[in-house]
Design a binder for these strands. Structure first.
Lengths: 120, 120
DNA sequence: CCACGCTACCGCGTGATGCGCAGTACTACG
DNA sequence: CGTAGTACTGCGCATCACGCGGTAGCGTGG
């Protein structure tokens, strides 16, 4: 994948956002992410991320047996997790803005950050 | 650094954008990136990226001796490099939009992608 | 009944990449 | 001469997404 490197550090917050409102199990989180536009995400990456987030205290988990298939390991976001989500969301926004501005410099900067012909 | 992972796959395009208009040498590219808001970038990362881009044909290079200090290895973007820059810029924009939408779902989606209470 | 296929999860090894650190070298300044 | 700033390089490490293979439950068709 060519966007594979872009996911670094972002999968965490993407997964948190995905289950922010509804608990989810791995296989389903993969589907949700793909539906959201992160098409190329590998399932192993998601399972790994869920485990990592669980280990860090951002998620809690419970297993639900299923009649039509294997059991499902649901993950639920914790208070810790919501805090992380908010922080990382803000971090992402700042970073994305910086990058976007660097890639497509807007000629008329908002809030007079610098005037047109500035040097340093 | 906490944004260290966010840089993955993005430093390439950031460096290309940095020297798109003016050739630059490593030490200076680091300063430009930091000035642009990518404060936490390590110098070794930039030097490595420049070398990688050069190896891939996106940059050409020439050495300029300097009176007041060590020599400077300038890098200049090639046609190849400009093509890469445009492609990766588009990739970034798509990715950033997807992520932003996932993190802060806009209640009124543009272009009626889905209506408010939709389920699946 | 067995082979498939889908759902669901896990572990292992790999590859890309950013980073810290150490080292080299040149200039200027006290 | 020692120190600081400029400028570049190489080495090893850590993070993290991914591919692949394996396990397992369930349903369907030959």
């Amino acid at each position: 994948m060519e966007t594979t490197q872009l996911l670094k550090g972002v999968l965490d917050v993407a997964v948190l956002a995905t289950i922010r409102d509804d608990d989810g199990y791995g296989y389903d989180v993969v589907r949700r992410l793909r539906a959201a536009g992160i098409d190329e995400v590998g399932d192993a990456s998601v399972y790994g991320t869920l485990r990592r987030l669980y280990a860090s205290g951002a998620l809690s988990t419970y297993v639900v047996p299923s009649d039509d298939g294997p059991h499902r390991k649901y993950y639920s976001i914790t208070g810790e997790g919501r805090t992380q989500l908010d922080e990382q969301r803000a971090t992402w926004r700042r970073f994305a803005d910086t990058m976007t501005e660097l890639l497509d410099p807007s000629p008329a900067r908002r809030a007079g950050v610098r005037t047109i012909g500035e040097k340093k």
